[in-house]
Amino acid sequence: MATLSDQLLHRIREAHRRRTLSWWERIYLPAIAQGLWVTSVHFWRNLFLHLAHRVGLFRRIPAAVTVQYPDEQRPTAPRLRTRHRLMQREDGTPRCVGCMLCETVCPAKCIYIVPGEHPDPSVEKYARSFDLDLGKCVYCGYCVEVCPEDAIRMDTQRHDIAAFSRDGMWLDIIELLHPGSRKHTDPPKKFIQLELEDFRRLKQSG
C-alpha cells in the first residue's frame, strides 16, 4: 500500500466484508435459546428482587434499570436546557433590559419583547412584556448564551411541559418570572405589559 488513504480504504473494505457464519451460527435456534435464557434470568431475578424490595429486603441491590417515572426521576445535569425562566432583581423587577438580543438570535423567533423606559438612568431600559411561545421553541439555548445581563436562564429543570392547546404552551412574563404561578386552566396573559411597580407587587404577594 502506497499512501495512507490507500491503507484506510483497505481497512474500511475489510470491515465491510461479510464474515462467513459457522454451521452452528447458521442454525438460528441456539441463538434464540440463548436470548430466551438471558431474558428469563433477568425476569426471575427482577421479580424476586422487586418483591424483596417491597418487603424491605435487599434494598441495596438494584433490580431493573427502568426508572419509574414520575415516582422516580433521573437526576439531570445542571446544564440541561429545560424550561425558561426570567431572573429577578432584588425588588422583583426583571433583570432583563430589553436589549432584544435573545429575540433576534432565537432561530424559531418565539420571543416577543416590548421594552419600556426605566427611571433609573443607570438601568435605563426594562422589559414591559416578555412572551415566549414554548410551542415554537427548539431549546437551543441561544437566548441564554446571548443575554448580557444573565436575565434569562433555562435551568428550571422543568422538562415535562404539557398543555391542552397551543396557547397553553405560551409563557407570559409573569409565568416566566414566577415559574409555576399559572394554573393549567388559566389562559396565558399574552403580551401583557407591566409597570415596574407591578413587578414589585407581584414579588411581595408571592
Partner: peptide, 9 residues
C-alpha cells in the same frame, strides 16, 4: 457598557 440598552446598537 450600554450596548444592550442603547438605541445606536
Amino acid at each position: 457598557l450600554d450596548c444592550p440598552v442603547c438605541d445606536q446598537a
